[in-house]
Write a protein that binds this DNA or RNA. Structure first.
Lengths: 191, 191
DNA sequence: GGTTTTTGATTGACTCGTCAATCAATAAAA
DNA sequence: TTTTATTGATTGACGAGTCAATCAAAAACC
């Protein structure tokens, strides 16, 4: 049976299963056994590859952020001009991907985890800094020195609106969310 | 021993202990035994009064929201004029109380819980609606029909900035946070 | 006033379940 | 035969919820 080179396959399967499981449960209160079963292996094997539960979670979070980062980068290469860049970043944050229930659950629990886990906190900081610097890069040509402060506000607004949408149980609309942030952006520019 | 009328005292003690325990752990992963011990009683008694773990948590959340609501109301009676009312609401959200680690933990976990628990979701909606209607009430004299949309934006910005502060490990500054929201508010008014 | 009954307060002990982590054993490549 | 893959079985710990029993105040009764 042992086809060699199983490790990366197993790891990927576990990461995917973890995100799905956390999404179903809505919390990090999920057992390794369940995750392993969903990924089609024994819990012992999960431990063998990841060492422990925490590391499985972290890998899952890392994966979520990687996907998000890729999405933003993808939107950026299509963007035209400074204003276009900012708009691309905003829209990427409210893509359908990010409103899938498992992704929402991942983010929410990630926030909770970041308060107590150094690793999670570090990961989160990376995301925040990247978002901020992306925004500043687009905003500077539009408003010069004010770019830093405005970027902070826009970033917070993105998080805030995302949070509200995530917590609402109505059908979410990414375009409405984007529109709100863009409206605020226009106020900042037009001043 | 049975002094009558212990129930409200015990309940209050359990609520307090729950908030403290969740604050320490940073998550809802705390045992009833620990909570009960901190509140100075047996776990059996905690079950006797509350029925189950979930109900203990909900009571704790309800209490946190009650305190927050009282703080906002207190700030509002001191406020002068529409603009003053809006400013009071904003500042109340960033008071020192709300940046205590246990309160932060309560909010973050509350968000997580609201995704799966109907009771928690209902509670959260009450808070959100109250915040929104308070903001609209202050904003309407300043901008008429636009009040609704602007209130939504300001509310999201409050949440977003709170979230960022909560997740930062630097010393938080409520006044800086307020200043950022007020800056955005001025942009909205001055348009 | 003294006695009995009721009732709220309280807990230790127990049940039943779960779960993370470990380990020894098996199987198949290389 | 050495390494990699894989698992069943096991262990040790912990936790939620239940229950029967105890204790003492208070209310009802004589």
């Amino acid at each position: 049976m042992p086809k060699l080179g199983m490790e990366p396959i197993r790891r990927a399967a576990l990461v995917k299963a973890t995100i799905a499981e956390v999404g179903d449960a809505g919390s990090l209160d999920v057992s390794v056994s369940k995750i392993a079963k969903r990924a089609g292996m024994s819990s012992a094997l999960a431990h063998h590859y990841f060492g422990g539960k925490d590391q499985i979670f972290l890998a899952a979070m890392r994966h979520t952020l990687t996907v998000y980062g890729a999405e933003v980068r993808g939107a950026l290469v299509m963007a035209d001009g400074p204003r276009g860049r900012v708009e691309a970043i905003i829209r990427a944050g409210f893509s359908n991907t990010n409103f899938r229930t498992d992704v929402i659950a991942a983010w929410l629990n990630f926030y909770v985890m970041a308060r107590t886990s150094d690793d999670a906190h570090r990961l989160l900081r990376i995301y925040q800094r990247r978002l901020h610097s992306n925004l500043v890069h687009g905003l500077r040509p539009l408003m010069g020195d004010r770019a830093g402060a405005v970027a902070a506000r826009i970033a917070a607004l993105i998080d805030g609106i995302y949070l509200r949408q995530a917590l609402s149980r109505d059908a979410v609309s990414g375009s409405d969310a984007s529109a709100q942030v863009l409206a605020a952006l226009d106020k900042e520019i037009g001043q």
